[in-house]
Write a protein that binds this DNA or RNA. Structure first.
Lengths: 324, 324
DNA sequence: AGGCTTATACTCCCTGTGAGCATTATTGTA
DNA sequence: TACAATAATGCTCACAGGGAGTATAAGCCT
């Protein structure tokens, strides 16, 4: 994607800045796979951290460095990879050298936990239990999150701040009859973080009366936040870009494809409309074979038509994310 | 936006990577303003480079570092700023230390070229003359680009490669009756780069018979490429997020707003539908006053309703980009 | 055979939106 | 003063996309 040559032209000194200073650069990977309806992310440290490591001068590029590392780690090829975000605003106490973290989102097909450093796959929804709405709104939202959020809202001193907090909470979590918006993963995490309902917030920010941590499995540092960024990006992306197929096996039934989308989006979709959209966009082609173990009428097997990438400008493929 | 605290938890050493190495980090800004229908970008070096400079340990965050620098440079506040992309895959000959470049897109209201380092504003369409379709498809596409692109297509050795090249060219430039897609700014630049029609490609890659450089004002290094990334991002973003208003004065008429959108998108929009969409989304409110110098019937003056940001999740504001 | 599950085909209806026509309110000009 | 030019603004129409439901087909299991 970002790989033009950049030599042959001499760089002009960029004025008005002091001379460069050495800064450490970290790469962090959000590597996603979906297995039987469960979206998972590649982790280390007993599912408590995302794989990461310093970018080295020897690496040809950011992507290749990370790609090589993940592929060695998982012994599977990364089909798709895109940059997520670059962070630098961490004020880590006691560390003199500033660290820049460049995060990437990668998609792969399967998972086979491979040896090194306690690598394994952790389910998205273990880290974000409020994000899975496939079988309805999770009970923990009304039971655990909402009352604590309302405490936090009321804890604001000024009226205006209370209103702002209430609005943010209702919009992001679909309170007070508002619709659920699955794309607001990061906003929800940030809200819970601010409200002190996330272990990573630290005990200081919790409200007196309540236990602080209620929401989901924590990760070190800001890794869960980076994961939230990755999930949000992926949920947004599957709606207009055929990246889902990077998570699918070579051939699949339309229902399998649908289940994969539903796993990522955390909500169910209308089956007939889903098929209509997939087929009318010619994203897939029949293999001629059929799956037999579907439990009902055998389903035709399809494969992704890679030709779509060259046929049209892929800046507009739509997947329906609506109610079931 | 990206500002959570990250202390309080000790970082676990991330396995299997060699120890960190010092790398230089550069910040690059694509700063955009629109003045009387002309989208401009803040430049230095006589409009030949984007403002940039090393990220320093003293900076609180990436954003704040860049923001402070640009505001000093232009003496105007940056309303909006978002990260564009982080590059590292440059193989600059003769430089031992690897450089990482983090690019940002910033929007501001006005331009008043201020003193330091030949700072000034350059028109987008001077760098990308094929991108302005407001008064129809630019003649230079058919006259200069298309024939050279066809040469490049034919120059491919294998049939398959010729087909791929042809498809890319027709999709990105709307050849052979295909529609123009204003979002493909980066793809177009990359295509021209590969085809050797861009000064930055270097003379080596040009085809023998033809003069290499025909397309647009060059910039140093990959700065024009970064600008293309910024334009593409902005053109995509105005369609679903109310960022245009960051480029507008406090009060404005709907036509002024429309002209601004058209300047960015490089194409005209249907006036009545534009107004309908703006108003039904309640993005603006009347000031009660009217502009008198409009040349025809006086237009009501509007101001942006900042409340929309808190009222709803801004993940779906639509601007119509269609034919006039 | 009857029930269960899944696949697949159609239909319906509403909204969003592209596109055009018509009218109103100004300024400049013959 | 009438008329042209320029904008602003109001309204209608038609069509496509997509949300949602009904109906039928084709397997499995008991």
């Amino acid at each position: 994607m970002q790989t033009l040559e950049r030599d042959g032209i001499k760089k002009v000194a960029p004025s008005s800045f002091a001379a460069g200073q050495a800064i450490a650069v970290d790469l962090i990977a959000v590597t996603v796979a979906v297995t039987n309806g469960d979206p998972r992310v590649l982790t280390i440290e007993d599912e408590g951290a995302l794989p990461s490591g310093p970018f080295q001068v020897g690496h040809r590029s950011l992507q290749s460095g990370l790609r090589a590392w993940v592929e060695r780690q998982t012994s599977l090829p990364l089909g798709y990879m895109e940059q997520l975000y670059t962070f630098a605003d961490r004020d880590r106490a006691g560390v003199e050298q500033q660290v820049i973290s460049i995060s990437y989102l990668g998609l792969t097909r399967e998972q086979r936990a491979s040896g090194e450093s306690e690598a394994g796959w952790g389910s998205w929804y273990a880290y974000f239990p409020w994000e899975d709405h496939r079988i309805g709104t999770p009970a923990m939202i009304a039971r655990e999150l909402e009352p604590r959020l309302r405490d936090w809202i009321e804890a604001a001193r000024e009226l205006e701040q209370r209103q702002t907090r209430l609005q943010r909470a209702s919009i992001t979590f679909g309170l007070d009859g508002r619709p659920w918006n699955e794309d607001l993963v990061l906003q929800r995490y940030e809200l819970l973080f601010e409200a002190g309902l996330i272990a990573e917030s630290g005990p200081a920010s919790a409200l007196p009366g309540r236990a602080a941590t209620t929401g989901g499995r924590p990760m070190i540092l800001d890794h869960r936040r980076i994961l939230a960024t990755g999930i949000a990006r992926l949920r947004a992306k599957i709606k207009y870009h055929p990246v889902v197929f990077e998570l699918m096996p070579e051939t699949f039934t339309l229902l399998q494809l649908q289940r994969c989308v539903e796993a990522l989006a955390g909500r169910l979709v209308h089956k007939q409309n889903f098929r209509r959209l997939i087929e009318q966009q010619e994203l897939v082609e029949e293999t001629g074979q059929a799956a037999q173990d579907t439990g009902g009428r055998p389903a035709k097997l399809f494969r992704f038509r890679r030709a779509v990438f060259t046929e049209r400008a892929i800046v507009g493929t739509k997947l329906p994310i609506s109610k079931a």
